[in-house]
Amino acid sequence: MGNNKTHADQKYIEALLKNDTIVIKEIYEKFAPKVVGYIKKNSGDESKAQDIIQETLIVIYKQATEKKLVLTCPFDAYFFLLCKRKWLNELKKNTTKEVTINEEVVSINDESVQYADETLVFEARNELFAEVFDQLGKACKELLKATFTIKSMEEVALKLDQSYGYVRKKKSLCIGQLTKMVQSSPKYNQIKNLL
């Protein structure tokens, strides 16, 4: 995908990064109706659609922030696919509900599917990492929070009244611990080949 030209719809990704109200409204006006229609046809309502759309936009924002997401396909199909799969996952969680799937309202090309897959794997990774980070000991959590928010390791060392070398070593051990924890998680095996 990296060889292709950036699509004009990259403006929607930029709008999320810049929190641009006007273009964000445009996203809702242009792309939400299709999602709402799909969710309503498939056992949902407008309130569920509103949640799915918001969650999807946040995931896209996160991926854009961390992985510098650059679209080479239209936003429409990519966004719709993401919302659709999120909604289907939501339905699966609630097995008591009868699920009738009414298929497709947009033409989907392979590139959109690939983008949507990457975003979904990214989201799965985030959920797993958040769970694992929660299980980390308090001392490590605090040290990592300090090192990643303050940025300057010298400043962190000063704040924690420790040497620079100690803080860096400790930071590496804490991330090492997280690495081990994640690798031993069964969920990791499901997504590791996709990361």
Binding site: E66, F129, F148, G176, T179, L195
Partner: peptide
């Protein structure tokens, strides 16, 4: 690879 993923995740999630 996982270590790098963690670094990138923490940088993004603890900062933004």
């Amino acid at each position: 690879r996982v270590y790098k993923e963690w670094s990138s995740y923490l940088d993004s999630n603890l900062n933004s």
